[in-house]
Design a protein around this nucleic acid. Structure first.
Lengths: 202, 202
DNA sequence: GTCTATAACTAGATAGAC
DNA sequence: GTCTATCTAGTTATAGAC
């Protein structure tokens, strides 16, 4: 599993190119070229382009979701949850994981795009992996804000996810407005949390 | 310019397929097949797939942006702007335009994805068309919230855009949580406005 | 303006040697 | 496990008849 491993080189190159060009536009020839491995290695190690994409998503999303679930469990073991805590448990892990590996920002931006893209192989796998996390997030948010109607809660959490995933895309490439200082993942996170907390409590 | 016009049939079919599959995955064969016109008509009328994509974006985004600019001008002619008014001038037009044509929700979702997608032909055209609108939006928001630092304002507007564009994607296809009542564009808008207003004023 | 036919290219996948 | 060579099928784009 070291970096010179063909499997790992393929995962790294695919992650970069899916982030840069999207799933459909990143060809296996471009991926194997960047990885410095043979074209046929994709089918040998992952079966297909789709199998490679699923492995790319799983490699980084599973640890992030494990951390989210651990934090949800910790909140559940306390008393009535605080909405700020619940939001932080969901939102912080992807941003904080950026500090552990310089490749993570590209992945985080890519997964956010996979979420936005239509009819996509990566998207369906993403939804499978997110299912249990969603359920916990929704349940704890409802416990934290018991006076909010179910539909109102649902939509507000969707707005949280929209703001978060757009912020995640900004990790990789800033939006088209210029003249602003570049910022790190913790900086964006520090600005995002008050915004979504206020929105949830509106 | 009636619906039986080849140009219009192509624009409609391309809009649908770009929304369903994304730009790269929607082939000209699929588009011309759905439109019921000949494959070569794309090059005759639009020059290339890229030209078709640009025309799809322009057709609906230009009227939406004209409405935004008119509302910004109205706000400018008053006294110190209210942040709620400024946000509404930017956010409402795409949602309200959904009521005027049943094809608009698919377009609105598509344009939001084009914004999220990387290195994309549609994205570069989208940014060109949005440039002046961005500048006005940023300037008026700064006037409405003069105590907010420039970077803080910038990031909060980005969170607004994230929440809005995710909501726009929901117009076309609901997120993976089930059991919620389907809602119309005005319903989503009515829930979105208090959320982002609270976030901006946090 | 619309068609057929095809050029020129790229895609993902795989067979089989090593 | 890794390579070369190739297959099959898809892509955009265009030339030229009508």
């Amino acid at each position: 599993m070291d970096d010179s491993d063909t499997r790992t080189k393929l995962l790294d190159a695919a992650e970069e190119l899916f982030a840069e060009k999207g799933f459909a536009a990143a060809s296996l020839r471009a991926i194997t070229g960047r990885a410095g491995v043979n074209l046929a290695a994709v089918n040998y190690h992952f079966g297909s382009k789709e199998g490679l994409a699923r492995a790319v998503v799983r490699r980084r999303l599973e640890p992030i979701n494990r951390e989210r679930m651990a934090r949800f469990a910790a909140i559940r073991s306390g008393g009535r949850p605080d909405i700020r805590e619940v939001l932080a448990a969901f939102v912080e892990p992807p941003f904080l994981s950026c500090g552990r590996d310089s490749r993570v920002p590209a992945f985080v931006a890519m997964i956010s795009r996979a979420f936005a893209e239509p009819e996509n192989v990566m998207q369906s796998h993403f939804f499978e992996l997110m299912g249990p996390v969603w359920q916990e997030f929704l349940g704890l948010a409802a416990a934290a804000l018991p006076d909010l109607g179910r539909d109102e809660l649902f939509w507000r959490l969707n707005f949280v996810i929209g703001a978060m995933s757009h912020a995640m895309r900004c990790l990789d490439r800033l939006p088209p407005l210029e003249g602003f200082s570049a910022v790190s993942a913790p900086d964006i996170l520090a600005r995002l949390m008050p915004f979504i907390t206020a929105g949830m409590e509106a």
